[in-house]
Each structure stands twice: as C-alpha cells, then as structure tokens.
Design a protein around this nucleic acid. Structure first.
Lengths: 345, 345
DNA sequence: GCCGGTTGTGAATACGTATACACACCTCTA
DNA sequence: TAGAGGTGTGTATACGTATTCACAACCGGC
C-alpha cells in the first residue's frame, strides 16, 4: 500500500528477468540488438514492477534532460499568461518538460547560476531587455537559446517576434485614416525592442499622415492596469483631450478604459482606444477593445521548432523570424467603421 | 568568446588547484574538515573558472533535486495565474526551482510517468479532483506532496485550502440580510471540494434565511468567461429575473457582468453580483466586483512550509489547514450597504 | 620518546543509467 | 569444413559529484 521503499532500478529488474542490466537498458532505448524473446520477457517484468527509469541518471549519461528552461516575467499579466500557457502546451506535445523561472522575483546573479547548472537542454527567454544580461549569460553557457516575443536587435541568437513595428504602424494609420488629429499615446520605456517598435511604428504612421503627437498627449509609464488608469486621468481630464488613444499593451488599454469609465468618458463616442496584444480579455464586453493581434501560437510554435533544431544541431545558422500582427477592430473604435468581431487565437 | 566547450568539472578544478576532487567537493559543501589555506585556494580557482556544480550529478548523489513539481490547470485564468505567480515567488525565496505541468494539456498516463521519474523533491497539486488519480499516484510514489487550493476530503495528505464553505456562507448571508429573496446561483460540477463547498455553503446560508433557490435560477456550467456570459443570458432575460446572483468564481462573475452589460441590465441597480476569489481584476472599474477573498499568499506560504517540512521528515503527521475567506464588498452590490473598497492581497 | 586523538587530505566508491567492447554462438559461402 | 560476418548478450566503464575509508602528519600528556 505504501510502497515508499527505494524504487526499483534497472539492475533489480535485470536480476528478476534473468538478464544483465545492459539488456534492460537496451530494451528501454529500443535498441534493435535484442531478441524478440528477451525483449518480451523484459517488458513483462518492467510492466509488472511499474518501472520508470530514473530521469536523473539517464540525463547524466545522455547529457539530455528533455527539459526546457523558460524565463518569464509577470505571469499574472493576461498576455504573459497566454504565452506561458501556449509554451507549456507545445512543449508537452513534443515530450519536453518546462522549468519556469520568474525573473522578476529573482536577482540576476542567482538566475545566472541556474543557467550554468546544465539542468535543461535549452532556454526560452520571453522578456529580453537591453539591460538584462540574461541572454548574454545563456548564450555564453553554450546552451541552445531562443528569444520569444521580445528580441534583441543584432544579437546572434534565434529569435521569434511579432512584427511590432508594422502592427503599430497599421494601428496608427487606422486612426489617421479615420480622421483623428489629436491622438494620445501611452507607452513604456524602450527597455526592449517590443516596446520601442510599438511606439516608433505608431509615431511613423502618424508622421506619414502629417500628424505629430503633442508632448502632453504622450505618456511614458509602467506596465500595470493602474498605470493605464492613471494615464486616462491625465489625458482625458485635459481641456482639449485627444480623440483617440493608443496604448502599447492591452493591459494598459484596460486600465485606460477603466479610467475613462471612472471619469464618465464614453468609448468610442468621446474617445477611441486601441491596444496591442489581442488578449482574450480584449474581446470581453467590458473592454471590447480594438487591438493589434499577436500570433501567440505561431510565435511559440516557431520558437520551439527553432530551439529543437538548434539542440539537434548547435552549429545551425541563427534564424530571426518576424510574424505579422494584424489589427483587430472592435467596439472601442468602431462606431464609424465597418466592424469585425474577430476572435483570432 | 564562444567557450562552448565542455564545462569544467570539479575534477578539472581540483587539478588546477593542486588538490583532489574530494577536497573541492568538501569546499563546495562547506565541510569543516578543510584547512583555511586550502579552502581559500580552491575558492579562488572556482571563482576564476566561474564554476557551477553540475546539478544533475549532485542530485543523483544526494537524492535531492531542489526542484518542486507543480501541477496546475488553466494558467490563463486570473486566479490560477495569481496562484502560480505566488508559488513561483515563494519557491524562489527558499531556493527551490519549479517544474510546471499543465495537466490540461497532458493525458494522465504521461503525467503519471513523470511523477515516478524522481525528478523533483516534492509535488504541489493545485487542482485535485475526485476523479483525477494524480494525487493517488503522487502519494503512492512516496514523493512528498501537498494539495493547495483544492483539497480531497479524508485524503491522508497535507492540504492547505481556503475555507470555501464559510466564505460562501458569508456571501449568502450577506445577500439574505440585504433583503434579497430571488437569488441566482452559477455553479460548477462538484468535481472537487472547492466547487462543492462554494455551492453548498451558499445554499446553507440561504436555507438558514428561509430562502431556497428556484431551479430555474441555479445554473451548473463550465469554467470560462463565456459560460458566465451565457448564464447571464439565461438568468437575466427571464420574466422575473433574480435580484442577486452569486457565482462560484470571479471569472464566471466577469462573464456574468459582461452578459448583463450586453443585455443592458444595470449592476447593482437591477441585479447584484457576487463572485469568489478576489482576483486583482475584481477591483477594476470594469467589474468592481464584490467577492470572497482567497488568501493566496497565506495558502501558498503554508503549503510550501508544509511541503518542506515533509521533505525533511517524511513520517510527519499529515496536516490539513483551512484559512478564512473574508467577503470583500465592492460596487457590484454596494448601493445600499456601507462600502469597503478592499484591496486585500 | 611512545601513544591515543585530532586534523587534513587523497584514493576509492556509489548513485542508476547508457554504451563501447568483448565474445560466444549461429549462418552462410567457398 | 573453415573462416567471414552477423546476432544477441554480458562485462566493464563513464557521466560528475558526495561521501566513506584509509592514512599521514601533527599534538599533547604521561
């Protein structure tokens, strides 16, 4: 009933089956050099004992752990949660485990130690920033590494990102073409190229339309719902508030929408709002947010493919993939425009 | 620059320092039987080489991996994301890694294999259900295991849960005392004691107030936002809709609120809404939801303490902890009642 | 000046598996 | 019928570390 003894080893079972440990191992690894007879007998013994190989010993011998280390921040943020979910799903599909590290909670030194422990076959970094040394350490460790969602320009490392610049540009052009002239921007520090491109792409579209953002209408803030909320207070309680506001993440847009709600400002009647990410929540009635879609599934799929490829062949050329981010129009902008209630993803 | 050679082993460094591998190991494990001289010399060499012990080899020898396996479902759900975040944070604080398995994506057989691989020192299960055999397998493997958030009555296993029954009871009493007589309930199948207690506790409070829920006002549904939305359609488009609705999770309440929004039903003027979980989002203006707080931090803290205790002493008595879940009143109910804008957690 | 005890170190081993190597046996061809 | 080549199995070893055991050097007390 309890059975909390030492679990049986391949040697134990070899004795039981009347063969050598090597033969048991050969059966386990599907070596062709085992007679059908012996194989059947061993398999029977293995099944009877409900045996599972010790993953540690196997990893030590083979040098592979079948585990991928995933670095991530802010799991509670809707987009990151969706990203994590997808990473977990796809890793599982190909028989890989996931060790998850939340960089936010961890000083970088301790993380860098972890990186060198050879505990994983590869790394997935989802929050690369210019100032973080994580990707440097990971690459220096020689462990296959892929950057997802956030990339680093010019870094010699596999990367899969959404085309944030283009997505932001399309969002900007959409607002310009709808006739907006006073446009607000809620953005983040350019700590990585994701936030940078979502900012610059948008500005570029406005510039192409002959519009520039007034200084008082551009807010650089932190990443939370509360920060979007505060931005709404600033932007919308001005004498002449913008008629449309773009935020570089959905979460900021949610905060902004809630801030507008608190002020009694109507969306889209008084102000249009556009976000970026197309999280599930963006389609909820509470927000009904026009936003730029990030192809999470495609990003993760491509990233894991790249990573596995590199694990198999470490000398492969580095690949950088950029996937299109289409605009999804919903009710936060759509009073005058044909509306498409997309539920991509 | 690349340095992608084989990483140095303790034996390599022993040679460099002019000592035996055993001595290096003694330094690494802080053994007292090393002369200050030798220790200093070895430490210098280790630092110069930027050496990190191979975690696999160490784990194989010591039998400890310093890694905890976490089983979870639906990471994209706000409450689960918060739970995961907290688990990651607290594990990190005590120097433990986390392997995350999303049970949803994985057939149970493959998970059960994982459980027996001795890859982790302990398990945290956050979604125990009556029908799942996960906890059985985990316990049978002899690996220390703790059930968080969802427990199994009568199971001989450490458990930390919120007092769902009491929380639900308080929610029910709150509605009764506010004078509601036609009350709606959106609940889940009783797949675990969490959903069961949140259902039965609420009904008990109503019964104590002499109220029973009309059959047409009790909806058993699935766990998503869309399901709460659909429940709103059913409950609120009736001829005589309930004046208050309680849902057993915040996520269902969000869907319900969105459904009400779509129907033009005002909250709390036309109907009160109460949820359960007190996720961050519940405090957003979009929802401003009265809900029962789950003490996530306390649950995770106690759970990890319990787990570490059991890892240290496997024969310890099993402990079952139930933590109070206080009602947090917000705008989805508070038009006639004194309002407390709690931001517990 | 001999001896029990302490201190620091190295040699050897074990953790559980995968695999290189050796070898005995069988089969087939010349 | 002998030798070449294939087939199935066992023996031995290696992965990198922690730890046991042995032992040399030193120390203090008679």
């Amino acid at each position: 009933m309890s059975g909390s003894n030492r679990p049986p080893t391949s040697r134990d079972l070899a004795r039981l089956a009347g063969v050598s440990q090597a033969t048991v191992s050969r059966v386990l690894t599907n070596s062709p050099r085992v007679s059908p007879d012996t194989r059947a007998r061993v398999l029977q013994v293995l099944a009877d004992a409900n045996y599972t190989p010790n993953a540690l010993a196997r990893a030590m011998k083979t040098g592979r752990t079948d585990t991928i280390g995933v670095f991530m921040t802010r799991v509670t943020s809707p987009f990151h949660a969706a990203l994590l979910d997808e990473i977990g799903r796809l890793l599982n599909q190909v028989g890989l485990h996931m060790i998850l590290w939340n960089i936010e909670h961890d000083p970088e030194e301790s993380v860098s130690e972890v990186i060198q422990q050879r505990l994983v076959d590869g790394f997935i970094l989802t929050s690369a920033t210019y100032t973080s040394k994580l990707h440097t350490i990971a690459l220096a460790s020689g462990t296959p590494t892929v950057l997802l969602h956030r990339g680093i320009d010019g870094l010699d490392c596999d990367q899969v990102v959404g085309d944030n610049w283009q997505g932001a540009y399309d969002a900007g052009r959409y607002l310009v073409e709808a006739g907006h002239r006073d446009i607000g921007l809620v953005t983040l520090e350019h700590t990585g190229n994701t936030s940078r491109d979502r900012d610059l792409g948008f500005r570029a579209a406005l510039a192409d339309g002959g519009i520039s953002i007034k200084a008082r209408n551009a807010i650089t803030t932190a990443v939370g719902h509360a920060d979007g909320h505060a931005a709404a207070q600033k932007l919308l309680s001005a004498k002449k508030p913008p008629t449309a506001i773009y935020t570089v993440t959905d979460l900021l847009a949610f905060g902004l929408l809630d801030g507008a709600r608190a002020l009694g400002v109507r969306v889209p009647d008084d102000v249009w709002v556009v976000g970026f990410d197309n999280t599930d929540m963006a389609s909820w009635e509470a927000f009904d947010l026009t936003t730029v879609d990030q192809p999470v599934h495609a990003i993760v799929k491509a990233g894991i493919d790249l990573l596995r490829h590199r694990i198999a062949d470490p000398s492969a050329d580095t690949t950088i993939i950029s996937l299109p981010c289409p605009l999804v129009v919903r009710g936060s902008t759509a009073d005058t425009v044909i509306r498409r209630r997309g539920t991509t993803r």
